[in-house]
Design a protein around this nucleic acid. Structure first.
Lengths: 326, 326
DNA sequence: CTGAAAGCGCTTACAG
DNA sequence: CTGAAAGCGCTTACAG
């Protein structure tokens, strides 16, 4: 049998209420008692039973980090892991624990709802794809604070500043005198690609440069390579992902075009692939770890002061210059 | 106020004990009562409070998945995410939840110990690097079942069959008639590299082929490239990771050596990089998702039947043939 | 099969 | 500042 608060009280010669007060840092306790309790706890190696405590306070000190089941986009994505890590770190800082909940859209997020109804978690961090109306309504009904990763109208959120990212990439090109630049990516699929494209276009138009938008390019090395080998040519390319950029560089090389001499290439997200490119890729780095930290911080604030309006945070990006641009 | 078991009992016209029996699928309940309770639960939308229940049963239905804090090896590693995903899936299947605990060796795994002492988790899955004597002793004392990811003497474990992997890679080379093969990797750092090397050497020696072991090659594209450009040459290379293999192929290409014509290359772990290699890389695929599933299953078994001897599982590997080998 | 009752380990008014 | 007592929402012998 584990030692309980009752044992501590007896050992210290005080009531359980006093021990409880000690545990909760209540000011209503004499120095003297405080010391006695402290010693007894130490000697008995007492550990409060969180299950009992939390049943009363109705707080589990855990939050759910939601992930879409069998979504290779998520699971093949190490960014996801970095976000998770950021969340965990920030949460641990505040004494909260992280529970991973994978959900399926098809069963209406049952697993998440269950964990909420069971009072297992105090808050939720979830990706924007699943922050639909019905789930958000549920969360609000249950008064469960949540933060969305990705821009949304429906609650607090954090996101990468993709528009600025697109702009920064374009400007890096324009600064070198490029007057004919092209954006490459798949705008059908991803909001963040459209945002990057938007920033890119704004910067290009502001400078009066010619700008081509290719929003129909699948994210794959093959697609990038095709374009690199094709006949059209721009002075600078901004590509929405590293794999496509890798292919593009390959294609350009095959065509005998020098990078960054004749053509420059800039991509997003600094990962191992950016370093495997030849030449090494200039990228707009996105700090996804920090994204997780912020998500956790926003949630923590909500957890503290029940009310509050929705908040949002846009994470700045920064350019990492390498050999694929001048 | 949420609806409690008491409300259900009243509504159904039975005692709380009967409702509790229903909830726990006790056979000691009449069809008739069962039905009444079922309906009341439905009408009242009752959800049992797990905190109260678990306080009594002393089970949280959660397990901890332990990760080393700020270990870029882990967090930069999407394999880790796949393992986690496997664990989560298998666990959810059995009604268990996954809690992520990141620990620091420097503070003696305090965060993990805390969560155990607080009764927040019923079991632990942890990487072999932290499954040291002192932590294992703690877990045993607290009677907390655990499974280690990676081979160990100290408890149940699951691991990739790296020895077979190394053998399979070697044999794929030898089958094509190669009589002079080389293993490339960093044996200082990683157990799995040594295991792969071991399997490789065994196969090579068994076939009587000449085999070179280079266990001093850092896992980096540069290191691989150096070797590719160097003067020595073997008919076949087995490389312990994709980034090094990428570099090796690059170096060989620069030297004008054709792959797989003159030289063949095989690596481990099928990821995006294997596909970016030119030519595309033949790899020994390791199913890390399944590794997670097995870890969870082993743990679940322990959770069911308190006792039992330690168990282990070695995960088979399979060769994926691509253009870098014949 | 069923219910009344004790109890899990804590917190929190309440009265001093 | 402190303690006795009620209560959180369940489960589980126990007696029928």
């Amino acid at each position: 049998m584990a030692v309980t608060i009752r044992d501590v009280a007896r050992h210290a010669g005080v009531s359980v209420a006093t021990v409880s007060r000690y545990l909760n840092n209540s000011p209503l306790i004499a120095q003297d008692s405080r010391e006695k309790v402290r010693r007894s706890i130490e000697e008995l190696r007492y550990e409060p039973n969180f299950l009992a405590r939390n049943m009363l306070t109705k707080q589990s000190q855990s939050i759910a980090f939601v992930i879409e089941e069998s979504s290779p986009e998520t699971y093949g994505n190490e960014n996801y892991l970095r976000i998770q890590y950021g969340v965990e770190q920030a949460l641990a800082q505040h004494g909260y624990y992280l529970m991973i909940i994978s959900v399926r859209r098809s069963d209406h997020f049952q697993s998440l709802k269950k964990v909420i109804l069971e009072n297992r978690i105090d808050g939720v961090i979830l990706p924007v794809q699943m922050a639909g109306k019905s789930l958000v309504r549920f969360l609000r009904e249950k008064q469960t604070p949540f933060v969305v990763i990705g821009r949304t109208e429906l609650g607090s959120w954090v996101d990468i500043d993709n528009v600025s990212g697109g702009r920064a990439a374009a400007e890096a090109l324009l600064q070198t005198g490029a007057r004919d630049v092209c954006f490459l990516g798949n705008g059908e699929e991803k909001v963040f690609v459209r945002e990057r494209a938007e920033g890119f276009r704004a910067a290009a138009e502001a400078s009066g440069a010619k700008n081509a938008m290719r929003l129909d390019c699948p994210a794959s090395a093959e697609a990038g390579r095709e374009i690199g080998r094709g006949d059209g040519l721009h002075e600078g390319y901004v590509v929405s992902d590293n794999v496509t950029a890798f292919g593009l560089l390959q294609g350009l090389r095959e065509r005998g075009i020098s990078v960054p001499g004749q053509v420059q290439v800039i991509s997003f997200d600094d990962g191992i692939i950016a370093q495997l490119c030849a030449p090494k890729l200039t990228v707009v780095d996105i700090d996804v770890h920090q994204l997780g930290v912020w998500a956790a911080e926003l949630l923590y604030q909500q957890l503290q002061s029940a009310a509050d309006a929705d908040q949002q945070r846009l994470l700045p990006v920064r350019l990492i210059r390498r050999a694929s641009s001048r």
